[in-house]
Design a protein around this nucleic acid. Structure first.
Length: 568
RNA sequence: CGGGGCGUGGCGCAGCUUGGUAGCGCGUCUGGUUUGGGACCAGAAAGUCGCAGGUUCGAAUCCUGUCGCCCCGACCA
């Protein structure tokens, strides 16, 4: 491709709307433009990257016995009513009507369609197992789309669904997909981790996330420094350390006047007790009932764990009015002692002695509180987020923490949808059995953004070779010099003939502009053809991340660069 | 949905408090000089100041409404 023909409008200045680096660079480097909030148009360079990601995904899905299909984006309301999700899915689903006022949804996911499809045409145990997938746009009316492609309202996704006879079959399919996903992210050239994840509202009993590591990522994960354990902080089990041999003597509980002290930090200053010797009291409405949750002052509550532990279908933080009515004090003065409600305590509270917390009276706190003596929780439940420094639940090692972007997520669904959609097969004994399902997604467009987020520097994007829009860019320093252009054309032809995807920067621009653009759009290897070296029949080769040029003769450069690319 | 911010040539912004000629940088076009890390000179085109009402002799500027965008939160998984 000639750069003079390529539509890649690069910007010299940062677009004001972009906050994170992948968003900024994809706009600046001319990969995409915003069409609306969370809706983007992809320009030629982005399409090349997306197609490459899709192709890698497709190859691995096919290798794992997946078969590609394509389902409609527009989905009839009746299918969603059958699964019960038309009313449950809420505002996140784009809904529309046709001229006859029939309801439709823009597909946020395709369980309903595919289960219906499979139900109609899979009748015998002989037809299973089956794995079907598609690569297609998804639509979710996010409350707040943000960060460019990270959370869009329209995005490209690969979704595969597995259909098995039973749980054992599902295990096999799940393992296949797990392996295929590892292969995919490895081939994409990205650093990633597989983490145990919460399966959330989708249900099922096993789930893993594939997280592309990047400091700006929204997912926080912990991983063990000794074994291969890794988990989303929301899922990671928290392990209590061995108790101290001897509990310290219990001090007498005392009420302290603490005017104006509302936060843990303020109390640290006031009492001199560190946060981990205090208890934090959080108030939640769980299915309409006000409850209190106690955890160590320096910890964070994990609402998902709480919701699971309480088996609550509806859970949200209580408002101060309700709290004040029932507890006699506002936020910042609450504590477990004497609360007329169900109190749930994190296990760590059982290891706290003589700790402090609110007194349920404004401007007062209690010190030397002890569980068992001063209050008895309804239940001890693990409800905090895991953190770096925690004990690994598998091997006892120490957990480290890092951030990343959830690019893939695999779930065991079980029979949730096959029950709802009545998708069954006839077994060997002539009995109808529900099909056991799994679903497996990769955000293709999000993966592109995640790659940029992980691979960039001051000058722009640094694509891993497997997903770079072009492998190589040839830059004649001065496009008006015939000898330079001749050499450039010759190399362009030779590389192209050998299967290398080459961009030839034949634009009538100064060298500086060409270099800046080449770096910005992130082409892995650059060949520069300049007057001095060309006199010696040589050209310069430079990898995107290298500082130094390599001088090679025109005769050897093709083989050498091919070897370099193959080594990547 | 709550809080905050922003809408002014293609992009980034100033002007608004105190109403009176729409401005700067980048980009674009023409000509010339240049040509190894975002060149220089000269000239040019391009803006219903988001939209709709209102106040006023006069509105980018003041008032009301509305639409859109960005950030934080809640929500979702």
């Amino acid at each position: 491709m000639k750069a003079s023909q390529l539509f890649f409008p690069t910007l010299r200045e940062l677009p004001s709307e972009a906050e994170i680096v992948s968003h900024q660079l994809l706009l600046r480097a001319g990969y995409m433009r915003k069409t609306g909030a969370g809706i983007y148009s992809y320009l030629p360079l982005a399409v090349r990257v997306l197609k490459k990601i899709e192709q890698i995904v497709r190859e691995e899905m096919n290798r794992a016995d997946g078969q590609e299909i394509l389902m409609p984006i527009i989905q009839p309301q009746e299918l969603w009513e059958k699964s019960g999700r038309w009313s449950v899915y809420g505002d996140e689903m784009f809904r529309l009507q046709d001229r006859h006022k029939r309801g439709f949804a823009l597909g946020p996911t395709h369980e309903e369609i595919i289960t219906t499809l499979v139900d109609a045409d899979v009748q015998s145990y002989r037809d299973l197992p089956l794995m079907l997938y598609q690569i297609q746009n998804k639509y979710r009316d996010e409350i707040r789309p943000r960060f460019g492609l990270m959370r869009g309202r329209e995005f490209i996704m690969k979704d595969l669904y597995s259909f098995d006879l039973d749980e054992e079959g599902l295990d096999v399919s799940y393992k296949k997909m797990y392996a295929a996903y590892c292969a995919i992210f490895h081939r994409l050239g990205l650093e990633f981790r597989v983490v145990e994840a919460d399966s959330g509202a989708i249900g099922g009993n096993e789930s893993h996330e594939f997280v592309v590591l990047a400091d700006s990522g929204e997912s926080v994960i912990v991983y063990c420094d000794r074994c291969d354990y890794a988990a989303n902080v929301e899922k990671a089990e928290c392990v209590l350390p061995e108790p101290a041999k001897e509990a310290p003597p219990l001090q007498e509980m005392e009420k302290i006047h603490t005017p104006g002290v509302k936060t843990i930090q303020e109390l640290v200053g006031f009492l001199g007790h560190p946060a981990h010797e205090q208890a934090k009291t959080l108030m939640y409405m769980a299915d309409g009932e006000l409850i209190a949750v106690i955890l160590r002052g320096d910890r964070e509550l994990n609402e998902i764990k709480l919701q699971h532990a309480l088996q609550a279908s509806e859970l949200f933080m209580a408002d101060e009015m309700t709290v004040r009515e029932q507890c006699g004090a506002g936020f910042g003065s609450l504590g477990p002692v004497g609360l007329p409600l169900k109190v749930y305590a994190d296990p760590e509270i059982t290891r706290l002695y003589n700790f402090s917390a609110g007194a349920n009276q404004d401007d007062y706190h209690l010190v030397n509180i002890n569980l068992g003596r001063d209050f008895i929780p309804e239940k001890i439940i693990d409800v905090r987020n895991a953190e770096a420094g925690d004990i690994c639940p598998h091997c006892g090692g120490t957990l480290q923490s890092t951030r990343g972007i959830e690019a893939g997520h695999i779930f065991k669904l079980g029979t949730k949808y096959s029950d709802a959609m009545e998708a069954s097969y006839r077994d060997q004994n002539g009995q109808d059995q529900p099909i056991v399902m799994g679903c497996y997604g990769i955000g293709i467009s999000r993966t592109m953004a995640a790659a940029v987020e992980q691979k960039n520097d001051q000058d722009g994007i640094v694509w891993p070779l497997p997903i770079a829009p072009y492998h190589l860019i040839i830059v004649p320093v001065n496009s008006k010099k015939e000898d330079q252009m001749e050499a450039a054309e010759r190399l362009y032809q030779e590389f192209s003939a050998r299967g290398v995807e080459v961009l030839l920067d034949d634009r009538d621009e100064r060298a500086g502009v060409k270099f800046k653009d080449a770096d910005l759009i992130g082409i892995p290897v650059r060949i520069t053809i300049g007057p001095k070296s060309l006199q010696e029949n040589k050209v310069e080769v430079k990898k995107r991340m290298d500082k130094e040029n390599l001088l090679l003769t025109l005769d050897e450069v093709v083989d050498k660069v091919l070897a370099m690319l193959n080594a990547e």
